[in-house]
Amino acid sequence: MAASTYSPSQGAERRQRQQQMRRLSIQSDWDRSDGRSFIQCRPAFLRTGAANAASGSAYAEFGTTKVIVSVFGPRESKKAMMYSDIGRLNCNVTFTTFATSLRGQGSDNKEYSAMLHKALEGAVILETFPKTTVDVFALVLESGGSDLPVIISCASLALADAGIMMYDLVSSVSVSCIGKNILIDPTNEEEVCQDGSLVLACMPARNEVTQLTLTGEWSLPKINEAMELCMDACLKLAGIMRSCLKESANLSN
């Protein structure tokens, strides 16, 4: 390794911590690193109007996960695009170079971009802006676990701020399954040692799910339990998002 670049390698330490977590997960009862209970989310901070140049923007901070989303448009689709009666939603998720503990990893995240698009597609009324495109750019400033749900919630807030017609706000929450336990809103280190994860994005006022991603090992009763937990958390998160929008509306009046 070149001596000029300093990149602390914490591999051994991290592995040790993971093993410790795994050992803990066998037990039914243990404490989470930030002192939450298993069914407690991190404190959420949401604010609209984070970027001035955009038509709408929002900033979200859930624990150490920090995301900024800007929405541009609706603006005319590029010429090469075919004529379409409905609008297009273009989503792009980027990580800053300093977002993760391993530095220099920042780049476009194709997988998250596609998942963000799928989660929002159902909520935005695309028929209201034919021939045009709405661009959603999400930038993860710091990745502290459960990034995708935070991006989805923040993006729907930014869309609402931009005055784009939607059926409902989309709020999203993820849970991890570790051993016998189900943990809501997992942090990075909890995500590393999970057996399975579930990301749920829904429109709470309509009681409709826009996206459900299930990975890893799950048993049927656990899925049910996790779903219910997520739906309940989404409902509460939507309440916070709503009050954030109300607050900004009152400010501008």
Binding site: R206, K246, A249, N250
Partner: peptide
């Protein structure tokens, strides 16, 4: 009493 609403109110 300008009633302000948010999405899905």
């Amino acid at each position: 009493a300008a009633a302000s609403v948010t999405v899905a109110d």
